[in-house]
């Protein structure tokens, strides 16, 4: 039996009426262990203009590298207060911001460890289906051996790595088109 997959459609310009009050800007409530970070950035369109109506959803492992999900069967510590899901809207300047903890490493293909990363889904008017990307961390030796980053053309990898702009403050932008276009994934 195979049913036909439902087609994606854009979130449109008014998604905020639903997603604004279900935002999760603080992914790691107090008490969750791990290195505290704030990730902020801008969403920019093909003209370099800020995108004022984007939604970013993030998913990550906890500080021990464990996903709060039954498919992660490894014997690692779960943090009951940490789900790992974030949802933020961009504002009229195209700016988004969320706080979380740096995730631990999780296995990739053939059990090769991946570098710490967040998975990010991007939704907005003008996107008929969402985009998938990742955020990696600066000054992280493991980035060099990450099996997913390794598939990205070397000159584009930096679009997936956040920049440290302050103490615990990281900047990572979503650039939809052009020279510095963010790498998006197709699964």
């Amino acid at each position: 039996m195979s049913l036909l997959l439902t087609a994606a459609q854009t979130v449109g310009p008014f998604v905020a009426i639903s997603f604004e009050h279900t935002q999760v800007q603080d992914v790691a409530p107090p008490g969750v262990s791990g290195e505290r970070i704030v990730i902020q950035g801008r969403v920019l369109d093909g003209d370099g203009k800020p995108v004022e109506d984007a939604v970013l959803e993030t998913w990550q492992a906890n500080g021990h590298g464990k996903y709060s999900h039954p498919e992660d069967t490894r014997e690692k510590l779960l943090d009951p207060a940490f789900k790992g899901f974030g949802r933020v809207l961009s504002n009229r300047h195209g700016v988004f911001r969320f706080s979380t903890i740096k995730p631990g490493r999780v296995p990739g293909p053939n059990d090769v460890l991946q570098a710490p990363h967040l998975v990010v889904l991007v939704f907005m008017r003008g996107l008929l289906k969402h985009l998938v990307t990742r955020v990696y961390f600066p000054d992280e030796a493991a980035n060099r051996e990450d099996p997913v980053l390794g598939l990205v053309p070397a000159e584009r990898r930096s679009t997936l790595v956040a920049a440290r702009v302050g103490d615990g403050l990281l900047e990572w932008n979503v650039v939809l088109q052009g020279q510095n276009e963010t790498v998006f994934f197709d699964y």
Partner: peptide, 13 residues
């Protein structure tokens, strides 16, 4: 870019 799906993608909230 088309990477293989890992534990990061097959899980979710």
């Amino acid at each position: 870019v088309m990477p293989p799906q890992t534990i990061s993608e097959v899980t979710g909230p």
